[in-house]
Nucleic acid binder design. Structure first.
Lengths: 365, 365
DNA sequence: ATTAGCACTCAGAGAGCGAGAGTGCCAGTG
DNA sequence: CACTGGCACTCTCGCTCTCTGAGTGCTAAT
């Protein structure tokens, strides 16, 4: 039972209208809204067939039609047009991307805000790293009882921590400590940091006061944090503006589901393809709480062993085309910025803020 | 026109009942619920007077009474009992505080989650630093075209950034750079990082490639970030469970107000007293969006020039007593942990996770 | 001073009704 | 034969109306 071209056109019209209005769509509306030159009666017949085929649904006998998940699926797969972004939108995205002189987590939250304010749906950003290891340790002596531990992860991330001690140590000790860690604690995963290894290190640098343990604890924490991944929800309040979430219970249910980062981290269940958009429509979602919502997901590369995901959650009646276009644009932009070994910033920045290189040279003469 | 003891008792009973049920309270209910041995008629008379005095309000003629903001104010100031936390609650708070081997911003978000899940209201955590400066720079050579910049702020915070260059530099250059920054760029505020100063530094270390600018840009960014303050909203979805926010429009309005960190940063308008709880009831809030919500705020010290605030937002019918007790406990705990020069962690941690010191020593023998 | 009793008020729930939108089907038309 | 106009039918939504019950304020009795 194939679907005729005309049926496709009608289905598209119905879905577009429903996305726009959130109200069941009647045959009359479709007939009037131009596009196809048919009477409402014809459209009615076609719609009846589309209903029989499972692409449309009827809330009750004398109401208009509403797209079924199957209908949305067809729409997403082949019907909808690739929407282009407006100048203004690309402009906004670009400028938001430019101030990226920041840590990854800040960036994620900013990108989430950007996505949610562009789409008017809540957005979710995740970073799901692949098993992290530390490639390098630096210990910076600050005071007799204080030093900074800096570790570099195999991605491009760097983490640090100021460590106070209840006793004093000298610079030499700190240096020895760093040397030992760099030889014996790099390129290993969390579970390879064993008591035995720590013990060995303690002997190697003559540590009797548990210094090794302190640094090792920091390393463990960092590795666990890094491989735990992070999830941020932005623009949650957008949900409440949607007619399908006027029921506070429904809104509450979804919101509290989304507020728990544990749940979010489980989102990217099907992570086959890369780089392109993935759409999960209503019941296609595994999580019960998402069964009548849709999720649009874009992946991006955040360095070698970092997989970023940015997603948007909304009702099944979602502006798939627009959301997909925006996410695609953001994700490719992000990948470009993050994957490249980060162009040297600061030059232009300072110049813009203060004055140009030339002006500056001049003014100091 | 003074308020008699009996009136106070009745007012307290009304408020307690209203906090619990969210429904207008009738004289009968108060009469029955023990405590005072009076007939409903007497209570009616007293309640009528309390209404005349402005402590209670009537939604409509034949409904029960509802506390007015003035009533809540009296309640908060002198009527309510200092609630004690249950064992379970103190337990939860303590254990949450213990895993504090983390950055400040992570900590803030964790504390926010803790507060909101304990109180069942949305929680807000802010860190509003006083003009930050950098006390120390460290530049760590990684590769010919890569180094890590680590700066220490006058609080206890440390920030870092991995810097890639489009050209190579040698270790000597990096060292000179660090030396110059440590002598000329420490203990100054953002606006003192001028083109002149940068120019001077460039000459001082013979930098012709704009290295100074790059590091200076990082310093500027860090300082701006640090003094911008940060605001995190947690547990937003709790709002939707409250009967006063069953109206999605109301919920939406408040939620989107709270989602904007700009707004939150403006919250601590009246910051007179320290260390104790502050309650802003309904119209006492400056922001229009909060006019019929209440905010309970606790301050804590997060080091020398860092002022932390943790707050809870809810309807005017809020469990002031319980919320205040919880926040007070959290805030004092936080101050203790953060103000103290941070006890050495790691020892215990590792031991707990793996085995005890003794066991470990034994097992390696 | 307190209480019991009573008439009064008013929001909210529920029933009943009508309008309007949309459907399905049938007969007519190019 | 595909399409269209027309018509009877269905069902939701919004409206009004009524009724119930909780709660009040007042008065008279204790």
């Amino acid at each position: 039972m194939d679907i005729s071209d005309r049926k496709k056109k009608i289905l598209t019209a119905v879905i577009d209208a429903y996305i726009a209005t959130a109200e069941p769509v009647g045959s009359k509306l479709i007939a009037q809204s131009g596009g196809l030159d048919l009477s409402s009666a014809t459209i009615r017949n076609e719609m009846a067939e589309l209903t029989a085929m499972g692409y449309l649904e009827q809330p009750h006998t004398s109401a208009g039609r509403v797209p079924s998940p199957q209908g949305y699926r067809l729409y997403v797969n082949e019907l909808m047009e690739r929407q282009r972004l407006s100048m203004e939108e690309t402009e906004r995205i670009n400028s938001a991307m430019n101030l990226k002189m920041q840590q990854l987590d800040k960036l994620m939250s900013d990108i989430g805000k950007l996505a949610s304010s562009l789409t008017q749906y809540p957005a979710v950003t995740l970073a799901a790293p692949v098993a992290a290891t530390i490639t390098r340790y630096d210990l910076i002596y600050v005071e007799a009882d204080t030093f900074i531990a800096v570790v570099m992860l195999d991605g491009k991330d760097v983490e640090n921590k100021l460590i106070h001690l209840p006793f004093s140590v000298d610079r030499g000790m700190i240096q020895r400590l760093a040397a030992v860690f760099n030889t014996d604690f790099t390129h290993i995963t969390v579970d390879q940091i064993t008591p035995e290894r720590i013990d060995r290190a303690e002997r190697a640098c003559g540590d009797t006061m548990g210094l090794v343990s302190v640094v090792a604890a920091f390393a463990i924490d960092t590795l666990q944090n890094a491989s735990r991944g992070e999830a941020i929800l932005s623009g949650a309040s957008n949900l409440l503006a949607l007619p399908e979430f006027r029921d506070p219970d429904k809104a509450h249910q979804l919101l509290s589901y989304l507020s728990d980062s544990e749940h979010l981290l489980g989102l990217p269940a099907a992570e086959g393809e890369d780089s392109d958009i993935q759409v999960l429509i209503g019941p296609e979602n595994v999580a019960e709480e998402l069964k009548d919502s849709s999720v649009v997901i874009a992946r991006y590369n955040a360095g070698d062993n970092m997989r970023g995901i940015i997603g948007v959650v909304g009702p099944t009646r979602m502006d798939y085309s627009g959301v997909a276009a925006k996410l695609r644009y953001i994700a490719t932009g992000l990948s470009r910025i993050l994957a490249a070994p980060e162009p040297p910033r600061g030059f232009e920045k300072l110049q813009v803020k203060e004055m140009t290189e030339d002006e500056r040279k001049d003014s100091t003469k």
